[in-house]
Design a protein around this nucleic acid. Structure first.
Lengths: 233, 233
DNA sequence: TGACAGCGCAGAGCAGTGCTCTTTAATGGA
DNA sequence: TCCATTAAAGAGCACTGCTCTGCGCTGTCA
């Protein structure tokens, strides 16, 4: 009875996987709002109502795609980090930044779904929060590794972080950036947001007629941000 | 004959304005993808096809809203800047940053439409590029004012900007940031993107469970960025 | 082996969308 | 006053997400 149950479960998983794959390819070509349950069903040779056996609503399908997106960015970051010598903190950090950008350029619609404006009417469920931290975890670990090795030297140009950031910094230390000071934690978060600000601006057309060589500009800006966070040049 | 023509034109303008207003209020409550031409028509007591006399398509309505959004942010930035003593460059700069954030918090859906992921299938026309620079112009003028007054002292922690940024910097000098060095221009653009990265992260839920006192954190981060650009603390 | 419950799928249908086309009404100039 | 231009209405097309009902297959237990 367990065997049969898993047989059913297996076919179910297979179909679920196929649905998300077709949905992802549609997302890649049409964008999030162009994703149509009926079109997915058509492409699978099913009738639209059958999809609802697997995803109770369109939003649930989107949620699955968002989770996939977070994981894909996380994997990209992890691989980029792993490919660097572990003592080269600046190199690892830059590699992660580049990995995020390259993934975004390769999957613009998925990036938009994950880091762009939330799809209207759609509320990101708690489910997405865990995978969201995956890439940030890589980022944080590099900072914390650099700190532990004494390789972190944040230039004294920032005012001290606000008192109210204390508990947040403690939470960050407990999860992704061990033993780092409040000041460094604040700079790191700011650097993380600056990374995504840069990627979003490039992807969403804000650099049109402003920046031509975006590879080089990104590289330069990230080096600045890294330096601000305390990484060596 | 001119008078009558303008009478017709006037009623036309009035209705066009009313359509965009209702559309904007719908945008504010439903979000971009929830904006429905038919709903706008209903609210005006018209039939849906009549709207097409004023806006050839839904995308054209969105374009009008985007232009309005850019202008609104521009106005907010201009007013914030004007309210500061002109010699207080850091104060002016911070005021503009705050103005952008406050406008975004007050008009999240409009912000998402303008600076979030482009609506699927929608291509921002050239029309939107001019209003887009309005807020950036304020920002650039502060930097250039500070530079002219000798109040800009960028800390030497950044590598020099890439050669390929030269022409872009020249274009920026010609338009929004007179006489500023390539290095400062690059830092300023990066600061501008960091500002929007921060606002987007906050607005799109990326700070959930990470940053609690977002006012204070924003303030601190922007002070860091300003310092990095060369403004005095 | 046969009855039964659960599951997956098909199909029809509802309410909504953007957009087009044709027809009707109003407006304002000659 | 006539008549062309413009606005509005209404019907209709193709599409969407989603629901509900009914049918057939599958695996289970007596």
């Amino acid at each position: 009875m367990n065997a049969s149950r898993t047989a059913r479960e297996r076919v179910r998983e297979e179909l679920t996987r196929e649905i998300t794959e077709i949905a992802r390819s549609q997302l890649a070509t049409e964008g999030a709002a162009g994703l149509s349950l009926r079109a997915v069903a058509r492409e699978m040779g099913m009738v639209s109502s059958a999809i609802y056996r697997y995803f109770p609503s369109r939003d649930d399908l989107l949620t699955a795609l968002i989770i996939d997106g977070y994981n894909a960015i996380g994997v990209a970051a992890e691989q980029a980090d792993a490919a660097c010598p572990s003592g080269d903190y600046t190199g690892r950090w830059l590699a992660v930044c580049r990995a995020v950008r390259n993934w975004a350029l390769a999957h613009p619609h998925e990036y938009a779904l994950v880091y762009g404006s939330p799809v209207p009417g759609y509320q990101a469920p708690q489910q997405t929060i865990a995978p969201a931290t995956r890439a940030a975890t890589v980022y944080g670990k590099i900072i914390s590794d650099a700190h532990r090795a004494g390789a972190l030297d944040p230039p004294g140009i920032c005012p001290p972080p606000p008192q109210s950031f204390g508990p947040d910094a403690a939470a960050l230390r407990a999860s992704v950036m061990a033993k780092v000071s409040d000041d460094v934690a604040a700079r790191a978060v700011a650097g993380w947001t600056a990374l995504f600000g840069m990627v979003s601006f490039e992807l969403f057309g804000q650099f049109e007629n402003v920046i031509t060589d975006r590879d080089a500009f990104f590289e330069h800006s990230m080096r600045c941000q890294g330096r601000l966070t305390g990484l060596s040049p």
